[in-house]
């Protein structure tokens, strides 16, 4: 069952939320495979269950039926082995800790030696383009910088999988474009498997190796589009005619998904 080459795997996943008088089928028969080192974006309208999918894979909630695997393990085993990091939509930094101490939080939980964790955190801050900000407090940083700290924190455990739930959704487009480039660079340097939830077509196409398109109510993956852009993405990739073709293809798939119902 466990394919060694897969970073992420979902098989017939369903998730049903039952509350008082409500019964919502959030996910219906989700099948998805992300190869190790792949960058998969999941795109779809609000409420289509894309965050639910990420939350199942990152062991924040359990599926109703079906199977999820991270590096060939159950999400729980993978979490306990600290094989993945999560970046949330909000930077979610602790205001009483300095930038450095926010980044070292996971290492502190892992009981890593103090000097080692400071060194790792400094390296990670450099990786996300924030060298020298160790002693700042979160409130002294802009939204984009705070999200970089959150990425550094997720990377500090040196995870092989990174879950990102609309991490740049709250940022302005200029900052978002820049962080897209930064994330591509970080991905190349860490060779992590990335699952990236987004609302943005261009963002999804620009960074990913594949884009999964979802429809809402019930949440289904209607199409998986391979992004056959050159492996090395730069600012110029956005001018590539193929980039436009793919954006149009994903947009068509999204409209088709919306038109099904």
């Amino acid at each position: 069952m466990a394919d060694q080459a897969l970073g992420l795997m979902a098989q017939n996943l369903t998730k049903r939320f039952t509350g008082s008088g409500s019964d919502v089928l959030a996910l219906d028969g989700i099948n998805l495979e992300v190869p190790k080192g792949g960058f998969t974006s999941v795109i779809g309208p609000s409420g289509c269950g894309k965050s639910t999918l990420l939350r199942i894979l990152s062991d924040l909630i359990e599926p109703t039926t079906g199977q999820a695997e991270v590096n060939g393990k159950s999400p729980r085993e993978a979490r306990e082995a600290r094989e993945f990091g999560v970046v949330f939509q909000a930077p979610n930094l602790l205001p009483w800790r300095t930038v450095l101490k926010n980044v070292t939080l996971p290492l502190q939980v892992m009981k890593v030696d103090r000097d080692d964790r400071a060194k790792t955190a400094t390296d990670m801050l450099e990786l996300v383009g924030l060298p020298g900000f160790e002693r700042h407090h979160p409130w002294q940083l802009s939204g984009g910088m705070q999200q970089r700290v959150a990425i550094a924190r997720a990377l500090s455990m040196q995870p092989s999988v990174l879950f990102m739930d609309e991490p740049f959704g709250a940022l302005d487009e200029i900052t978002r474009d820049r962080l897209n480039l930064e994330l591509i660079r970080i991905w190349a340097q860490t060779s992590a498997t990335i699952m990236f939830i987004t609302h943005s077509l261009t963002e999804a196409v620009f960074m990913s190796t594949q884009v999964a398109v979802m429809s809402a109510r019930p949440g289904r993956i209607t199409e998986v589009i391979d992004i056959d852009l050159p492996a090395e993405r730069t600012a110029e990739t956005r001018d590539d005619p193929r980039f436009y073709e793919l954006v149009i293809e994903v947009r068509r798939a999204l409209s088709a998904a919306a038109g099904v119902h």
């Binding site: 909000a90 979610n92 602790l94």
Partner: peptide
């Protein structure tokens, strides 16, 4: 915030760490 709790959950923090590292300081 629920997101902060989830953060501590994903990094495998114990109940004690959640109490002293998140709940009381917050």
């Amino acid at each position: 915030p629920a997101e902060s709790r989830e953060l501590f959950q994903t990094i495998g923090a114990s109940k004690r760490t959640v109490l002293f590292g998140l709940e009381i300081p917050f």
